[in-house]
Design a protein around this nucleic acid. Structure first.
Length: 585
RNA sequence: GCCUCCAUAGUUAAAUGGAUAUAACGGUCCCCUCCUAAGGGACAAUUAUAGGUUCGAUUCCUAUUGGGGGUACCA
């Protein structure tokens, strides 16, 4: 990280910094340096006999929750109390006695603390560097090469095209889309995908439901019985009515199968178009819309079944073809006794297709009700000769809508179950996307409508956006006094950023790239929203404690640099969430 | 029954096995002569129960209690 900077030429200096720091995770680098420092101390202490020669247990360097315990802390002494047969504090002291010099390193001070932690304090130059890094890297700040370009497929929403999308799809949409962004920023090559279930049982049921509604509208409500397991929704009636208006009542005389097919051919593209429109309004655009029907047409489903047969993973019983389960997992039907493959069989073929398209990691965002499907999918993929564990399912718990503290089930306007489209009519997109990503996928959400529509600080998204608007406001106030940002002066003055508020904010700014890596690898974008709220808090505290306008040049420029660094992080973070980034509020 | 996820302030939620368990909302107060008070600050309040592993457990293991989900030739 040592860079020879040309301070006489600000442009060149910025370029040099960018080259040195772009796509790096400063916290990860600092941890590595700290670990190397401890490792050297260990070798030296063992060599001169201060510590026994036994092989040391693995240790970690982490960021303490409270900065008064250092910027970084190492637990090596505690984990080796047994291996070395010594008290942790004694081990830590022996290590520090043998430690290499810290001059010209990012470490400023090291001490033994608490039960035997080695606490490391980072040098002011490290803090200054982090401010400048976030400024010069601009809209790329936060991006890393962590994923090394690995191909990741994120499939989410994949709602049935037989009706409108519901609240679970709203959560899945926000979650999957932002998770995909996290992979992108963390250096993976990611594709967003929607799987359209345009084949199989539910389409048959769709056709029968449409036909029954059509015939009811032609012949009268009581003349035709509606199928018991049919789709009850109003949208089915509406589609049937549209078809009737366009094609007349003549279809009532045709064979039922023909009528059903005609209705599906009419309604399915409309429903798919609606889903695409609503998701686009929700700021989601997919790279691939994959049709289940294409797997049946191309023979991929048959090929998948043949493959499993050939590998002896199946057996026949009572006229059906069964897939053998794992020890804990039950056996499942692949091909029904009537010769029709199950959804499960098509899904196996679908995931094999993803592998064959070159993805090494498959992420599926599913509702919690699909939980039982995970193990059998992974087993089936393994049985078919693929890496079953490369399929990673993010299970999402349910959404409960709440207004005035009371659960809401139906829309006031339509009197029907609330759809994604209803929600977006009522709640700002910014709110919805942010709030659905505040909770971890595994915990159920109480989505508070009052909070989501609130235009004040009750709404977390405004709190974060306000921090950005405040920084823009500072820039405007400075511009009125004809003060512009001067990087060289800022860099020179950055060693004055030593107050608690300034240092806390710098630590948070430096954490951004690592937060995105953790969100991607942990499949948990909630880390990003929480981080942004934390960053906004850090900025608001800095804003209250440290003035910019009116200070003398070096300090003013250094603090302005910190504000601009924060602005870049807020902007990049909110953009990832596809939340708007206002200059003024 | 079996499988699985969950249980933390009044409420909703944080905490890669670490130091005094952290925030928001709600409650009671305080701060605009100052770059936006959509902000900042103070106070009170929490790990379901019983064991175990560990130098150290909200976190891991076992049991119990209480919730969600699954357990179809549905998707």
């Amino acid at each position: 990280m040592a860079v020879m900077l040309d301070k006489s030429n600000p442009e060149k200096m910025m370029e040099q910094m960018r080259e040195a720091w772009q796509f790096t995770d400063p916290i990860a680098i600092a941890k590595d340096e700290a670990a190397a420092f401890v490792q050297k101390a260990l070798s030296a202490a063992q060599k001169d006999g201060a510590l026994p020669g036994a092989e040391a247990a693995p240790f970690v360097v982490e960021q303490p929750a409270d900065p008064k315990n250092g910027d970084l802390a190492c637990n090596i002494a505690m984990v080796n109390a047994k291996t070395f047969g010594m008290a942790p504090r004694k081990i830590a002291e022996a290590l520090l006695a043998a430690a290499p010099p810290i001059e010209n390193s990012i470490i400023e001070k090291v001490e033994v603390a608490g039960p035997g932690f080695i606490n490391l304090y980072l040098a002011q130059s490290w803090f200054s560097g982090r401010v400048m890094q976030a400024v010069v890297c601009g809209e790329d700040y936060g991006r890393t090469h962590h994923g090394k370009g690995e191909k990741v497929n994120v499939e989410f929403v994949s709602a049935n095209p037989t009706g409108p999308m519901h609240l679970g799809n709203a959560r899945g949409g926000a979650l999957g889309d932002v998770l995909a962004s996290c992979f992108d920023w963390a250096g993976y090559e990611v594709e967003r995908e929607f799987y359209i279930n345009d084949a199989g049982n539910q389409i048959t049921k769709f056709g029968k439901s449409l036909a029954a509604r059509y015939l009811q509208q032609v012949k009268g409500e009581d003349a035709v019985e509606f199928p018991e397991d049919g789709y009850q929704g109003e949208d089915i009636k509406e589609r049937a009515a549209e078809f009737l208006a366009q094609n007349g009542p003549g279809w009532a005389e045709k064979p039922e199968a023909e009528l059903e097919q005609a209705l599906v051919d009419y309604a399915l593209p409309k429903n798919i178009q609606d889903m695409q429109d609503h998701l686009a309004k929700y700021r989601i655009s997919y790279d691939v819309w994959f049709r289940e029907s294409s797997l049946h047409q191309s023979g991929a489903v048959e090929r998948a079944i043949d493959k499993l047969k050939a590998l002896d993973a199946t057996y026949e019983k009572e006229g059906a073809l069964w897939m053998k389960g794992d020890e804990d997992d039950k056996d499942n039907v692949l091909v029904r006794a009537n010769g029709v493959p199950t959804y499960f069989a098509a899904d196996i073929a679908y995931h094999i297709d993803k592998f064959e398209r070159g993805f090494t990691s498959l992420i599926d965002v599913w509702g919690a009700d699909h939980h039982g499907h995970i193990a059998r999918m992974q087993n089936a993929l393994t049985a078919a000769g693929y890496k079953g564990e490369a399929l990673d399912v993010v299970l999402m718990q349910f959404v409960k809508l709440v207004r005035d503290g009371q659960p809401v089930r139906m829309s006031k306007r339509t009197g029907k179950a609330i759809t994604l489209s209803d929600l977006l009519d009522e709640v700002p997109i910014d709110s919805a996307r942010f709030l659905f990503n505040m909770r971890e996928p595994g915990s159920s959400i109480e989505f508070d409508l009052d909070q989501a529509v609130a235009q004040d600080s009750d709404n977390p998204v405004y709190y974060v956006q306000y921090a950005h608007a405040r920084i823009c406001s500072i820039e405007r106030a400075l511009a009125e006094e004809s003060i512009a940002f001067e990087p060289a002066v800022a860099f020179g003055g950055a060693d004055r950023l030593t107050t608690g508020e300034e240092r806390d904010l710098i630590r948070k700014v430096a954490a951004f790239p690592g937060v995105l890596v953790t969100a991607a690898t942990g499949r948990n974008p909630a880390g990003v929203t929480r981080y942004l709220m934390d960053l906004a808090t850090g900025f608001h505290k800095f804003y209250t404690a440290c003035h910019i306008k009116g200070e003398e040049a070096p300090l003013l420029q250094a603090r302005l640099a910190l504000a601009l660094a924060t602005k870049n992080v807020l902007k990049n973070g909110l953009s990832m969430l596809k939340v708007t980034v206002p200059d003024k509020m």
